[in-house]
């Protein structure tokens, strides 16, 4: 399990349930590595601000993380973390590797609406 303050997705069924129950979801799938940590930090900062978005992380190395690793939108990704944005259960945006606060904010605002 990742040592972050975010809520963790620990299985494919968790992942499925979260997507069914929530309209706007951001999931960062990574490790405790230098390119991933900044994204988790940004999500922790944004979590209280974007109350209409659910923020989760998922350990890249657990077998069930295939739901993200193998998503068609992540084809060609070769940099951690894989960050995926879902609206009504469908992927609307996915990014590979480190993103800064402005990049994450821009996606949240454009896909899920401003705070």
């Amino acid at each position: 399990m990742l040592q972050t303050n975010l809520k963790h997705i620990e299985s494919a069924s968790d992942h499925q349930k979260i997507l069914e129950e929530n309209e706007n979801v951001m999931i960062c799938c990574g490790r405790m590595g230098p390119m991933c940590l900044p994204v988790y930090d940004i999500m922790e900062e944004f979590e209280p601000l974007y109350s209409h978005v659910k923020f989760y992380d998922m350990d890249f190395d657990i077998p069930d993380a295939r739901v993200i690793r193998n998503a068609p939108e992540c084809r060609g990704f070769m940099g951690l973390p894989f960050t995926v944005y879902y609206k009504n259960g469908k992927i609307v945006k996915a990014t590979s590797s480190i993103q800064n606060e402005q990049q994450v904010r821009a996606i949240l605002d454009s896909e899920f609406g401003n705070i």
Binding site: R31, G33, P34, M35, C36, G76, F77, M78, G79, L80, T95, S96, S97, I98
Partner: peptide, 17 residues
């Protein structure tokens, strides 16, 4: 191609290669 073959961190992304 950042994150799609271009990387700035060997520790993070080495195993993709």
């Amino acid at each position: 191609f950042k994150g799609r073959g271009i990387s700035y961190c060997a520790t993070c992304d080495g195993d993709f290669f």
